[in-house]
């Protein structure tokens, strides 16, 4: 064999390929004009929110004015981070794999000693790096804004950013999975938006299930009973209930109301923080495994 000797193996050797791909994905991703546009826009909105007080009713005075002003800033910033952050997440997750198929870079990578699992791991890790850096930049600006306004360390905001990342992680994993079936970023972008919207509305799905009179599959005594009591309302209710059980509940990660109403250095009132972290990681892992299953035998 004429090929040169590769570096000595070690525990981390299988991760060298994914890390190389992740770093490349990150470097390429942060140069995308759409992404940079979203980021600049979000930073402008966050920064601009501190001037919103100028537009408040001048007859309102004292602490009340200060309080409304602060709430307005918080509301704008949290919403801005959430919306621009998710748009960046979906855009990056949806395009990471299909773009390399379009420009044929994937051929040069997968013809090397790189497994498809390693390739996907690298791409996904690169996407997460981009999401984290963007979230970090938006969060840092918001953090500084609040700190200088209130003079207290806004630790609750740090918790909020931490949980927002898990929301992004889940949406990112499923968008990434859809992108592994696609040849362009359009379908996965739509899929990602669908995951985010339904994931944010799962409480309503539960409500639809309850209102339809659906009592779950256990409520039926057999196929004949099911046919006898069948109705469109129950079908919709059953579907909504099933979706509620399958889809991630992204509202669990939302600390917006607490940030608006509570002192900035209060601890979060979310119960079961470790469980929520595990919940997010399990959903993200499921999304990634799904991506691998789609891509494992994909003809590229």
């Amino acid at each position: 064999m004429s090929s040169v000797a590769v570096s000595a193996g070690g525990l981390l050797t299988p991760l060298r390929g994914p890390w190389t791909i992740a770093w490349y994905t990150y470097r390429e991703g942060i140069r995308k004009k759409t992404l940079v546009g979203f980021l600049i826009l979000s930073l402008l909105v966050i920064f601009g929110s501190s001037f919103m007080g100028a537009f408040l009713n001048p007859t309102t005075v004292g602490d009340v004015e200060k309080d409304i002003d602060l709430k307005l800033i918080k509301d704008i910033c949290v919403t801005s981070i959430s919306i621009f952050g998710i748009l960046i997440t979906i855009f990056v997750s949806a395009s990471a794999v299909p773009t390399e198929l379009e420009n044929r870079v994937v051929y040069t990578i997968l013809s090397k000693p790189v497994r498809r699992f390693q390739y996907l791991l690298g791409k996904f890790a690169g996407v997460q790096l981009i999401v984290l850096v963007n979230l970090g930049l938006m969060g840092a600006l918001f953090f500084l804004l609040l700190y200088f306004r209130q003079g207290v360390m806004p630790t609750l905001l740090l918790w909020s950013i931490f949980f927002t990342y898990f929301e992004f992680l889940i949406v990112s994993a499923f968008t990434f999975a859809i992108s592994c079936t696609a040849t362009s970023a359009v379908l996965p972008t739509i899929g990602g938006l669908f995951v985010w919207i339904t994931g944010s509305l799962t409480e309503y799905l539960k409500d639809v299930g309850v209102r339809s009179g659906w009592k779950g599959w256990a409520g039926f005594e057999g196929p004949s009973d099911l046919m006898e009591h069948f109705s469109v309302e129950k079908l919709v209710g059953g579907l909504a209930e099933s979706l509620f059980r399958v889809l991630p509940n992204l509202q669990e990660y939302n600390l917006k109301m607490q940030i608006l109403d509570k002192p900035p250095n209060d601890p979060p009132t979310i119960d079961l923080i470790p469980q929520l972290i595990i919940y997010g990681l399990v959903y993200a892992a499921s999304g990634f495994i799904l991506a691998y299953l789609f891509y494992r035998r994909k003809e590229i």
Partner: peptide, 8 residues
Amino acid sequence: FYGRLYGL
């Protein structure tokens, strides 16, 4: 980049 993918 490509060299590292070979483990170099």
